[in-house]
Amino acid sequence: MSYAHPAGLPTVDAMTPAVLVLAGPVTRDEVTGLCDDVRALLEAGGAGTVVCDVGGLGPPGLAAVDLLARLQLAARRAGGRIRLRDPDPGLHALLDLVGLRFETEGQPEQREPPLGVEEAVEPGDPAV
């Protein structure tokens, strides 16, 4: 008996999130289909995260905020979450303004300080 190895690296494939590329201004009619796409990607993959590439989404506006909020809600209902790739600084600022927090690729997690940053100690501070 011989055993053929499956294609790819299963441990890596299960850890690699699916990517959904959002290009151009998205119309209201397309939002439902994109939410369905997020749910399908979460059900098909094992990582529990869908990366939304928003670099080509267009100028930041409330339509983009609404789209991302709906995608995040669809992902949460499916037991996952979305992570943003390449967001425009204006979109990032607009999301902060309306109180929506998204994980962004390439940024350190909130509980971890960025690499190379050291805390300063002022003279006279009590030792902890």
Rank of each mutant, 00 (worst) to 15 (best):
Met1Asp: 07
Ser2Thr: 10
Ser2Pro: 01
Ser2Ile: 06
Ser2Phe: 05
Ala4Tyr: 04
His5Asp: 10
Ala7Asn: 05
Ala7Cys: 01
Gly8Phe: 04
Gly8Pro: 04
Leu9Gln: 12
Thr11Phe: 13
Thr11Tyr: 10
Val12Cys: 07
Val12Ala: 14
Val12Arg: 13
Val12Phe: 10
Asp13Ser: 13
Asp13Gly: 11
Ala14His: 08
Ala14Phe: 08
Met15Gln: 15
Met15Gly: 13
Thr16Pro: 07
Pro17Ser: 12
Ala18Lys: 07
Val19Ala: 09
Leu20Ala: 06
Leu20Phe: 03
Leu22Glu: 04
Leu22Ser: 05
Leu22Gly: 03
Ala23Asn: 02
Pro25Met: 11
Pro25Glu: 11
Thr27Pro: 06
Thr27Ser: 15
Thr27Leu: 11
Arg28Val: 08
Asp29Val: 05
Asp29Thr: 05
Asp29His: 08
Glu30Trp: 02
Glu30Ser: 06
Val31Thr: 09
Val31Tyr: 07
Leu34Ile: 00
Asp36His: 05
Asp37Ile: 00
Val38Ile: 02
Arg39Asp: 05
Ala40Ile: 00
Leu41Glu: 07
Leu42Asn: 02
Leu42Ile: 00
Ala44Arg: 12
Gly45Ser: 12
Gly46His: 15
Ala47Leu: 06
Ala47His: 15
Val50Leu: 05
Cys52Arg: 02
Cys52Met: 03
Asp53Trp: 03
Asp53Phe: 04
Val54Cys: 10
Leu57Asn: 05
Leu57Thr: 00
Gly58Val: 04
Pro59Asp: 08
Pro59Met: 09
Pro59Phe: 13
Pro60Ser: 11
Gly61Ser: 06
Gly61Cys: 05
Leu62Ile: 10
Ala64Asp: 14
Val65Thr: 04
Asp66Arg: 13
Asp66Gly: 11
Asp66Ala: 14
Asp66Gln: 14
Leu68Gly: 11
Leu68Tyr: 06
Ala69Phe: 13
Leu71Phe: 02
Gln72Ala: 15
Ala74Glu: 04
Ala75Ile: 12
Arg76Leu: 09
Ala78Glu: 03
Ala78Val: 02
Gly79Phe: 10
Gly80Asn: 05
Arg81Val: 06
Ile82Trp: 04
Arg85Lys: 14
Arg85Phe: 00
Asp88Met: 03
Asp88Leu: 07
Pro89Asn: 14
Leu91Glu: 07
Leu91Pro: 00
Leu91Asn: 06
His92Pro: 00
Asp96Gly: 14
Leu97Asp: 15
Leu97Pro: 03
Val98His: 10
Val98Gly: 12
Arg101Gln: 15
Arg101His: 15
Arg101Glu: 15
Phe102Ala: 11
Glu103Trp: 00
Glu105Ile: 12
Glu105Leu: 15
Gly106Arg: 14
Gly106Phe: 12
Glu109Arg: 08
Glu109Val: 12
Arg111Lys: 02
Glu112Cys: 14
Glu112Asn: 09
Pro113Cys: 12
Pro114Glu: 14
Leu115Met: 01
Leu115His: 04
Leu115Asn: 00
Val117Phe: 11
Glu118Gly: 11
Glu119Pro: 05
Glu119Lys: 13
Glu119Asn: 05
Ala120Ser: 11
Ala120Leu: 15
Val121Gly: 03
Glu122Thr: 07
Glu122Ile: 01
Glu122Asn: 01
Pro123Thr: 02
Gly124Ala: 07
Asp125Leu: 09
Pro126Phe: 08
Ala127Pro: 09
Val128Leu: 13
